[in-house]
Design a protein around this nucleic acid. Structure first.
Length: 460
RNA sequence: GUCCCCAUCGUCUAGUCUGGUCCAGGACGCCGGCCUUUCACGCCGGCAACACCGGUUCAAAUCCGGUUGGGGACGCCA
């Protein structure tokens, strides 16, 4: 088995493309076959190198390695020329001199009369030759039907009469998508073409092209679309769609891959999969046929799961750049590690973890005004002063802090929670945080004293 | 408009091929409780679906037909 992922570098690699790549990768790896990458850059207008880099970087981040070097369509024009010549020579294609205006007009008229917009075949039997501005069209059989057994959808049939004579070489000499894909997949010996559902209606045209060329037709499998919450095809207006945007938001590649795999594919009740497990279990026959709605809550859950599993030192290294974005850095590894551990179960993303742990590393924390006005009244300040006194007598160890809250509460005759909140506010600036004993230990006596002092000085 | 495809909890899905074991299972989310120094984590419990109509059959989520709904495609873009 040989599969390929063939994105066009006209935008960032998005969620849908990533899943297509993943399924191609899984199918190939499961079968011990090859997975190759082909950059479909024949659209001179919109293709950009930065997008190619984005696609390559995204796949690498996801851990989807490809065999061999990526193939670029713009470097294969000789191959296309060869295939087109064969079609021309065998009278399966012809030169078309129709102007863009005439074609547009025909289409407009067809749409107006509620028909299917299609080329009327004016140049089909004119025996025209090449000329500047001319295009080459494929002679589509007017009768009969073209069918295939889709690996995911099952049997699909199209009446050839529905198809028209598609352009296979544009007037600029470059092949169009359908021609290039067929020439490439044929010459690269691709055995299984797995792509988005939006390509089903290209498939009969391509099969016709394969047959006209007299080359083996590969197997086809069309993956259901990924939709947004409104059940419309996932797009920018649904929020982040590019793979790298998810990296920026603090998602782990394992989580994204796991999520994407479960979008359309399943293996019984299993939800958590490593790439290795997916590879072992993957089967196109267990890929669903209906479109799936992208659900970030579930992605978040998976991300939390993988965050919980990540070894401490690795996790600390992953959070560090996010902390830098929060404006803190230069902390010793040991302190970073301890701090990150306290937020490991409190953040759904690396970004959230950084946000929740930044207070450890700031010179001064800004007190949440609402909480301050509520907690730093006379009583609250008295509690803080008690902490100052008590803490001064304590050795700086976690064991020493043990039970501190209980002692303070009984000493002051208040509830444990009431004793904790003013201190939490002073130390972290807010009312929700990791455990106070951990914070006391990580912050150290000097910082603790200073922050309590700052809170006592706070003027609402 | 034409063509193609799809249809189980709010969402992802198991079950559909090989009808009965499914008054439909799991997961996310949601709700309630427990734990608790806050927030989380964790644990326990709960709500929640076979789109509709006909047919076949002793029996249908599962097979057939239709309806409705949804998606996709109709480029010298890919």
């Amino acid at each position: 088995m040989k599969t390929r992922f063939a994105p066009s570098p006209t935008g960032h690699l998005h969620i849908g493309g990533a899943r297509t790549a993943l399924f191609n990768w899984l199918a190939a790896r499961h079968a011990g076959g090859e997975f190759v990458l082909r950059i479909e850059d024949t659209d001179q207008e919109r293709s950009k190198d930065e997008y190619t880099r984005d696609i390559l970087g995204s796949l690498e981040w996801l851990g989807l390695d490809h065999d061999g070097e990526p193939v670029y369509q713009t470097q294969r024009t000789g191959i296309y020329r060869e295939y087109v010549d064969r079609l021309l020579a065998s009278d399966r294609a012809y030169w078309c001199h129709c102007s863009q205006e005439r074609i547009d007009e025909t289409r407009r008229a067809a749409l107006e009369s509620k028909g299917k917009p299609r080329y009327d075949g004016r140049c089909r039997d004119l025996g025209l030759g090449p000329s500047p501005g001319a295009a080459v069209r494929f002679k589509c059989p007017p009768d009969g039907e073209t069918a295939w057994n889709d690996l995911i959808k099952g049997p699909v049939t199209f009446q050839n009469g529905e198809l028209d004579d598609l352009v296979i070489v544009r007037s600029d000499g470059l092949p169009t998508y359908n021609m290039a894909v067929v020439a490439d997949d044929a010459s690269m010996a691709i055995t299984h073409v797995l792509r988005g559902d939006d390509h089903v209606n290209n498939t009969p045209r391509q099969i016709l092209l394969y047959r006209a060329l007299g080359v083996p037709v590969p197997e086809f499998g069309h993956l259901p679309m990924i939709l947004g919450g409104d059940k419309k095809r996932l797009s920018k207006r649904h929020g982040a769609t590019s793979v790298l945007a998810y990296r920026e938001m603090g998602y782990l590649p394992k989580a994204l891959v796991n999520y994407l795999a479960r979008l359309g594919w399943s293996s019984g009740d299993k939800e958590i999969f490593t790439l290795e497990e997916m590879t072992a279990l993957f089967s196109l026959s267990s890929v669903g046929r209906s479109a799936a709605v992208f659900n970030q809550d579930k992605l978040d859950w998976l991300n939390s799961h993988y965050i919980k599993e990540t070894p401490a030192d690795e996790l600390a290294g992953l959070v560090r750049p996010f902390l830098a974005r929060e404006g803190v850095g230069g902390m010793p590894d040991e302190k970073l590690l301890a701090a990150v551990e306290t937020v490991r179960e409190r953040g759904k993303t690396l970004k959230e973890m950084a946000e929740k742990s930044a207070f450890y590393f700031m010179d001064r924390v800004a007190l949440d005004p609402k909480a301050a006005s509520k907690l730093l009244d006379g009583g609250g300040r008295a509690i803080l002063r008690s902490y100052l006194e008590t803490l001064a007598t304590l050795p700086e160890s976690h064991e020493a802090f043990d039970g501190l809250l209980d002692r303070m509460a009984s000493e002051l005759g208040i509830k444990k929670g009431a004793a904790a909140q003013p201190l939490r506010l002073a130390l972290t600036g807010g009312t929700a945080s990791p455990g106070l004993y951990d914070i006391l230990e990580i912050l150290g006596p000097e910082t603790v004293r200073r922050r309590i002092g700052d809170a006592l000085d706070f003027k609402g």
